[in-house]
Simulated assay, not measured.
Amino acid sequence: MTSESNRQKELDHRERALREREVELRLREMESNIHVNDAAFHETVKHQPENSQKPWMNKVILGGKLFVLGVGVLVAVKIASVLAGFIIVAALGWMSYKLFFESKKTNL
């Protein structure tokens, strides 16, 4: 029995060694193919459209957009504050009327 198990272990060991050698050989072949077939080096360049604007022009446009946005916000805040003032004055007037000028009915 032990000779059978020893024989099986020896076969497994040889098979593993054979697979390792095959893998090493295949890796060497792949490495040699890589070095033989070196691809040509191509330098890349940034694509520039023909009708692109100048960089300072883009900044001017962005600044103009920001200015218009700021003016729009200021106008919106001013309108909101005037509207809030009208609402507050109307609410105070209505409360004053209710408290001081509306006649109280007394049931005697």
Rank of each mutant, 00 (worst) to 15 (best):
L66A: 14
V71I: 14
L83H: 04
L83G: 04
R26K: 15
I34L: 15
N58S: 05
P55L: 01
L69Q: 03
L99P: 00
R26E: 15
V75R: 01
A84R: 04
W94C: 13
E24M: 07
W56T: 02
R26N: 09
A40R: 12
N51M: 01
S81I: 06
L92Q: 04
A39H: 05
V68N: 03
Y97D: 11
V23T: 11
L25Q: 13
R14P: 00
S52M: 14
H35K: 15
A80H: 01
R14I: 09
A90D: 05
P49D: 11
F86K: 08
L74T: 11
L27F: 02
R16E: 14
E31L: 12
E43G: 07
F41P: 01
W94S: 15
N58C: 03
H47A: 05
L25H: 12
S32R: 15
L62D: 14
K65W: 02
E43S: 13
V71E: 02
R26Q: 14
E31F: 05
A80Q: 02
K54H: 11
A90Y: 08
K46S: 11
V82C: 03
E20K: 08
A76T: 03
E22T: 00
S96G: 15
E29P: 00
N58T: 03
L62W: 02
N51P: 00
